[in-house]
């Protein structure tokens, strides 16, 4: 029997989707900037902080690599993102299955080991792989449509958010909007704000070409107000 989804559970599923996607996109994005730091007097990480709008309180490129990747006490670190994903996942084990949860465990296991030696970012590739495996497992194991929609809405809104911050071209952003956000937001009318969805659609569809960052604040506000819990 399909059961209702409580508000606490819906909230967990939504943020689980967001954090898993945030880990995946951040890991892929930061690699480029860590690599560029070699050629740019070690300062490229500053561009990254500015772009994704996190505080730039790192002392050096080395400090950035250590604290952005592995510092559990840094709320913006990859380690913290993954821990947040886990904190949400553990509370919905029975909804996502132990198998899906295991990929988050495996990711945490890898990052914990890498943190001990301050390993280079390439050694975190298995973490990104596990995040993808997590989604594969979710597709296989989560049967209830609404639970799946909440997870997917979280994932796609995060993808939209991160790609806008990273100034991805508008064509790609539009694809993300149409490829997951709108459909899932419509299916979840009781927990999404239809006005914000419509506004988001209008704001994104009216743009094309390069994303120079103009007006992005408004779009990001809209993304974060769309899910009502």
């Amino acid at each position: 029997m399909n059961s209702s989804i409580s508000l606490t559970k819906a909230n967990r599923l939504f943020w689980l989707g967001r954090y898993v996607e945030r880990v995946y996109i951040s890991l892929n994005a930061v690699k480029k900037y860590i690599d560029a730091s070699i050629d740019k007097n070690g300062e490229a990480y500053r561009d990254y902080c500015k772009l994704i709008r996190i505080p730039d309180n790192y002392l050096s490129s080395k400090d950035f690599k250590r604290r952005y990747l592995y510092d559990k006490t840094n709320p913006f670190s990859i380690f913290s993102m993954l821990t947040n994903a886990f904190d949400n996942a553990i509370e919905v084990r029975n909804d996502i299955t132990s198998e899906s949860l295991s990929y988050i465990h495996l990711g945490l296991d890898v990052i914990s080991k890498c943190a001990i030696n301050n390993a280079k970012v390439s050694e975190l590739q298995p973490v990104a792989d596990y995040m993808m495996s997590f989604w594969g497992s979710i597709d296989e194991n989560v049967i209830e449509i609404r639970k799946m929609s909440i997870l997917r809405l979280g994932r796609r809104l995060e993808s939209l958010d991160m790609n806008i911050r990273l100034k991805t071209c508008w064509e790609r952003v539009n694809e993300i909007l149409k490829g997951g956000v709108l459909t899932n937001a419509d299916m979840l009318s009781s927990v999404t704000d239809a006005t914000q969805t419509e506004r988001l659609k209008t704001l994104i569809e009216s743009r094309s070409g390069e994303n120079d960052g103009t007006g992005n604040d408004e779009i990001l506000n809209c993304i974060n107000a769309l899910f009502k819990i």
Partner: peptide, 23 residues
């Protein structure tokens, strides 16, 4: 269904699991 207390409510001597949209 795994529930915490906030997910449950008593009405008219019956216990309900409260879902999104007040189901």
């Amino acid at each position: 269904v795994l529930a915490v207390n906030a997910d449950l409510r008593v009405e008219n001597n019956k216990l309900y699991y409260i879902g999104i949209g007040n189901e």
